[in-house]
Design a protein around this nucleic acid. Sequence first.
DNA 1: CTGCTCGGCGCG
DNA 2: AAAGCGCGCCGAGCAG
Length: 653
Amino acid sequence: MSPFIVVSAAGSGRVHLIRTDDAGAPVPADVSEAAAPVGADPAITTVDAADLARTVAALESERPRWVWDDTSRWYPPLLAAGVRVERCVDLRLSHAILRHSTLTESSELAKSAPNAFTSVAQAGVPAPALPPSPSARQQHSTLFDLDVDLDPDDRADSLGTPPTGIDSRAASDDDRSATKAITPTPTPASSTPTPTPTTTTAGTPAPTTPPAPKPATAENPVLREFRRQREAIRTATDPSRIALLIAAESAGSLVAVEMQHAGIPWNADHHDRLLADLLGPRPVAPGIRPAHLEELLASIRTALDDPLANPDSPVELVKSLRRAGLDVTSTRSWELKSIVHPVIEPLLEYKKLSRLLTANGWNWVDTWVRDGRFHPNYIPGGVVTGRWASEGGGALQLPKQVRSAVIADPGWKLVVADAAQLEPRILAALAGDRAMAAAGRGRDLYDGIVASGAVDTRAHAKVGMLGAMYGGTTGESGRMLPRLARAYPAAVKFVEDAARAGEAGAVVTTRLGRTSPRPSDAWLDVQDAAGADGATDAARNRARSAARSWGRFTRNFVVQGTAAEWALCWISSVRRRLWHLTPPAPGTPLEQRPHLAFFLHDEVMVHTPAHLADAVAEELRSAALEAGRLIFGDAPVEFPVTVAIVGSYDQAK
DNA sequence: CTGCTCGGCGCG
DNA sequence: AAAGCGCGCCGAGCAG
């Protein structure tokens, strides 16, 4: 079996490498490595940080899993040195999952006091890397090469026995430590990468390994944490699920670093032309409005007969509008749209363009685009549900307005894939709802719901399903719910159960084992106050409102969180497939081969030489199939992806 | 001056 | 038509 190698900072610019078995027990290296053993312990070697990349590259042929505290700390320098690793274990991300998961709640790790690994959110992904296996079965057993059985045939419940995602125990101990992401390292294009792992990356937790001149492996805190995690997984309620989640989370952490490294191809000249077309030429100095905005401002002031009207200040603008006789309570676009008045058109246009200018204008390009690439900082596990967050440049909110500036290199293509109606499909699989699964088979899921007769239009099906998953009760979506409940009772019951759990203060757990945070002390206090003798109506209303709000959160957590797990498995598989699409090419940087360039919850973008675009498209589809089977086994729910091969991002869908 | 909340809006 | 989930970022405006 390929080894685990624990990577641990040793101080003084040195790094310890410790070989272990799958339980985290040190094992002697059977081949001598370039570095000398430390003391009498043959399992541990020490290298200079400056030699780490070379050492890792040499050892990579053994297909080890690199075990480190934080992929975002160790991997960037390796990539910068041209070294890509196949797979890893991100202990920080794994710890966050294992500490809170109901599947590992009896583990020593879950019961232990917070430690240096406790500080963060969640996320990460390992990197599988075998050549494509001939059979689906083999693919499953090798995808992540976990030490657990991932055979889909053993993953029982698919459809038929709905897995329990709901944990009905009431919340008890307080725990609000691990929800928010680490302080990320802002990475404007101008910043320089952290040169070596021994330099603590700014913003990341301090190195967890104290300088230990004569380290015994038993005392190594990174190794100790790894051992505890392996034990937690081994003794979990459903080891294969939590192990898959840990593997996917760690693989994701590799993808995140690789995508930041490669960047999104961004044509600054095109972006500038786009801005000039809409706003007018770039102002000569900051603080000056572009010409078109200035014109719109004049129109607004004329229409309001208010020469001082200021659309940049919501508070002032509401006053101006009300002075002009408009009955508004805010300046939200959707509220303004319902009003008939000459000021509305230029005002909405102003707001639209002003938003473009401030969010993705010339300053944005100057700050974030360097040498034709936008290098956002991705934060795996940055969202409580397991979704990624990002920091710097608003990478996950790129408006459609500017996507035409995302242009493939000459001779290259962008292959953009999107999982169609991912969340309702996830719900169908989670709930074992055969009718909903059937509605989505071979077609658009919402069309299938219409075809079943449950609702009359696709728009109704969509808004109804979104409402069911978000907890909407009013308007169109509220009206659709009874119809959906009649046609798809299992799916609706599933989300209702999740909501009831949250309202009662309980936690819920995703398919693979990510558990929702417990409600805050403040929330519990509000509930207690409402139950006390002599509680006022106001207190009871407040408690009911807070309970429902938390119920909407847990209702959505299970679906969004499981969708995030599907997406992690998808991109992990895509990563491995892309790597094997081209022959081994030692010394060829990652970004000169087909590579992931962007990931957005249920959508990915691959930047690839044009002649490989069709093959990439096929791998994206195959990977989606693989992700579904990994998580849901033989459940009859399909997870189709739409794939577009384009020259620029705006041409995709 | 910094640090914070808020309104508003971009994305899924 | 505009609400029900999850985010990040911007400018305005206020508190210190």
